[in-house]
Design a protein around this nucleic acid. Sequence first.
RNA 1: GUUCCCGUAGCUCAGCUGGAUAGAGCAACAGCCUUCUAAGCUGUGGGCCGCAGGUUCGAAUCCUGCCGGGAACGCCA
Length: 588
Amino acid sequence: MEDFLLRLREAVSQELHLPAETPLPVSHTPFDQKGDITITLFGLAKRLGKNPAELAQHLQVILPRRLPEIADTELVKGFLNIRLSDAYRLAFLQRPPRPVIDPQPETIILEYPSPNTNKPLHLGHLRNIFLGQSIGRILEARGHTVIPVCLFNDRGTNICKSMWAWKELAHGATPETTGVKGDHFVGDYYVAYAKAQKEAVEALVRSGMTPEQAEKEARPAREVLKMLELWEAGDPETLALWKKMNQWVYEGFETTFRRLDVHFKKYYYESEVFHQARHIVEQGLAMGVFVRHPDGSVHAHLEEAGLGDKVILRANGTALYITQDLAVAEQKSRDFQFDRSVYVVGNEQDYHFKVLFEILRRLGAPGSDKLYHLSYGMVELPSGRMKSREGTVVDADPLLDEMREAARKAAQDAVKSLTLPPEEAENLYEAVGQGALRYHILRVDPRKKIVFNPEESVALQGDTGPFIQYTHARLRKLLRDAELAGFSLEEKTSDLKEGLIEPERAMVKQLWRFNTALEEAARNYNPAEVAHYAFQTAQRFSAYYQQVPILKETRPDVRNARLLLTRRVGEYLALSLHLLGIQAPEKM
RNA sequence: GUUCCCGUAGCUCAGCUGGAUAGAGCAACAGCCUUCUAAGCUGUGGGCCGCAGGUUCGAAUCCUGCCGGGAACGCCA
């Protein structure tokens, strides 16, 4: 397809004597119109001082002469619709899908999901992971080299809160003694801290203190602060506890990462890089990017960039979040030679990244002009935002379990249920459960917030991941049966006597759109474009499958052509699902 | 208050850098399993594209203003 588009553009530019780089309005023809490729003539005609009709007349004569794959052209209003030949379609079907490589392949660092180490992963992290993973695969398909990295926010008051509560309440309990997954185990103490703090504050308020003062004066808060100071001072006992609890969390994360098939090339730890902050501050001061105020604090004045006065170092000399991110950015450029660096982080941090990128630019950091914040909307519940303090957070692990169980139930309730070996069945339920969740989240534009409705998320019918998986599985079964029957699935030219029928032409037309979807998904960092493509492809094939006999077709040439088409549709579906991080089961 | 994002069918979402009668899914209703897996297919109803201007041969799409919803603006992360 792409070769044709290239030659078409070339032919049009030459015939109309247009400058080489003129962008031409060439697009896929809508399905309700006859034709495959459309040239929109309004703008061109205006430029050339002709009317669309006479322009069309010229092109209609000249294009079929230069491009033999054109079967027919038709002018509808200002649109020149080009219909391609069946022979070209059949030639196209000889080849498996080939993603078009970006003309300038890059090495791209992709950072996600960068969790805190004080509580388990939740639904918000899942959106982040699904996006990161999918964008990574989409960029790789376009020929880029993707380096996925994960930053652990493993220090600070948050983890100290869990540590405090564990010391106070656990009596030596561990994930091993309780059988609780490590990240959840630590998270439970984070919740316990919040509860203890709340109670302490309430008691102080009852004895006459203002709420603001009580927040600071309550024993849990005071002791957590003390613990943080001990940590920063390198107190061995505190460090040992910190290491132990973080380790529990990493083990828990690792289990979930494995379940989600996410892998990173490198992990960064805030606790390791934050020491480097100091020298970046010195460098910034020397360059005049930062200014030290009389109280000792260091600021970046970004007023003329519309970003205000940003504090980089506290008056007491300690680093802030932004300072650490500067250090991480520097560390990345020491570790890798990259052309682009992408951060997958929620849109609540839009301001933070504007500031971060602006400062890196001013510091002249390597690659500072190739930074991108892949900003995505929050995941909310019908009841509102998720609040860990209010216990309304949807944790990732139990959600994944629920999705798997929903898939199990659907499989058992299915009209034509399948019997699979137990292990295979378990893998299938997991794949379908995740397929449902991933698709449900990836089908919406990343920038938009998602109101997560549990009932809708477990839906397996209609515009869902499992519908696409199901379409794929059925089609694979058909191909297996064809093989058993000894029918040809070979990629040889089908000597079709009567040509293709309209539904087949439309099906191929759908396959031709793949690279447009992929290119746009990569350009816009938007997996939803691939999701829509996958759904439309499945939908169109399901309708075709319903109305046209494939395996049962008796004319061998027609049957073989249909089998070849079916095989290609399966490959495009499997590839699209892969780009979304969704498995394409052989049976379901 | 300043900045940013969002507003399309009852609900959830598409609609690409302006283009053909605004599309899917869910929900509702009516059909289709002795025929390749009914997690499927076919059909019906359902829309001042938030409002008002502007640019244009042409605007859901671009610009301005307004209305409504959300977020960010810490010596928190």
